[in-house]
Design a protein around this nucleic acid. Sequence first.
DNA 1: AGTTATACCTAGCATTACTAGGCTTAAGGA
DNA 2: TCCTTAAGCCTAGTAATGCTAGGTATAACT
Lengths: 108, 108
Amino acid sequence: MSAEMLKGHLDAVLLATIGDDALHGYAIIEAIRARSGGHFDLPEGTIYPALHRLELAGLLASRWVQPDGGRKRRVYSLTDSGRRSLVERRAGWQSFATGIDRVLGARA
Amino acid sequence: MSAEMLKGHLDAVLLATIGDDALHGYAIIEAIRARSGGHFDLPEGTIYPALHRLELAGLLASRWVQPDGGRKRRVYSLTDSGRRSLVERRAGWQSFATGIDRVLGARA
DNA sequence: AGTTATACCTAGCATTACTAGGCTTAAGGA
DNA sequence: TCCTTAAGCCTAGTAATGCTAGGTATAACT
């Protein structure tokens, strides 16, 4: 359904989903599905490389956590740079969406 | 400014810009710039290959026109299939934008 | 013991917009 | 006349990025 419209916006989605929490990859996928109202059901092959990319870019930090039951998880949280980037990307999205809305003649 | 967020939405932008008119490439670029309120200033290297792609896909039809003054222009208009596709893409955009808005926590 | 859900990962692919060039014709100024 | 600028079209190659399809491991449930 969300073929590849997401291109260029995935980073914002990931940063916003993690927000002030510390989430692991699998939980992020579920959170995106829930928060988007089912619009986005992203495969692991999309999420994991993207998280690595964002960590490499210094926007995310990760640590391994061993929960009481279950296997080890890699948990991600925003760095200061990531928080700043999220603010920018939110503004960027609004600007972009406004532009598209105008051209498509939708949503006033 | 519109780095490559556009990915996956350019086709909708082109179809909507042409709409019920018959426009040539150069005019399309200017129309997008105007209608988007300056948000999108797309280079020719983006527009022309995209128009060819859409024509190949049967969503656009083109013909050469010789205006009184000036050189020949290639003028594009929507096919029936293109009109149908535009309707779908408009709906697709709204669905997509709603999903992103929810995740980003912006625009209600 | 086998299946399912959780949880992580990667190589390779396909799509797509952009960069950077090139070509032609007409108009306007020096 | 010559030169520059704008209008107008095009393409080869590049870079980015999300997805497909595969693999691995652990825990819980049947």
